[in-house]
Amino acid sequence: MFFFYPFKLIGGKVINFIRELGKMAIFLGSSLYSMLLPPYRPFRVTKQVYFIGVKTISVIVLTGLFTGMALTLQAYYVLITFGAESKLGAITSLSLIRELGPVISALMVIGRAGSALTAEIGIMRISEQIDALDSMALNPKNFLSVPNLIAGVISLPILNALFILMGIWGGYLVGVTLTGLSSGVYFGAISDSVQLQDLTLSLKKSLSFGLLFSWICCYKGYFADSGSGFGAEGVSKATTEAVVLSSVVILVCDYFITSILILT
């Protein structure tokens, strides 16, 4: 019996993992399906866009600015050794548009709004508020997860654009104001190097990340009582899992989206 124990353990974990993936897929599928059914909730969507998007603006402005500044400073001292500092604008803008903008803005939104989203839905679950919705013959997914999915998909691309703009401005502050590069050279390099497909790639990434983070955070909150803990402990674990899982999934998906879109 002892010989089989590791197989039993690994097998059990694999089965649980596959079951969890299936549950997540069903949750997303049923949420997307209920999105098509009335009642439509424009007020709740607007409220969630405000919560996820508008309230994250200050964080995005700050992180975007300093990311652009640090990136430009690093790039400047590398480029100057090759006498290629005229490409500073290109490096800053392409890094921000293709990678840093979509990824960091998504991570910021997860930290600020995603955790709160999971905690709120999780508390509604453990205090039977979701059961109350269900018992009123209302679809809890239509009420809770649909507005968040839509708000995530709307908010992320806008926050991404803001992050990139702030990053480019931060790069300008360091590259032009501090190091003395001409502003014409800085912005000229940006307009020469940035192509439409770079912007499309950035948009597609932020749309995907918006859906991914809101899906994972809503799912974890919705099933906060059926995970590894109950009550307040269940909500706390669900919140941690939501933040960790959505951050990891976004970083992994970033690589795959980049490879697929660059190869095709």
Binding site: I123, M124, S127, E128, Q129, D131, A132, S135
Partner: peptide, 12 residues
């Protein structure tokens, strides 16, 4: 149907 839950289940 109408249900009165144990702890009320009011929307807080």
């Amino acid at each position: 149907l109408g249900i009165v839950f144990q702890f009320g289940a009011l929307f807080d």
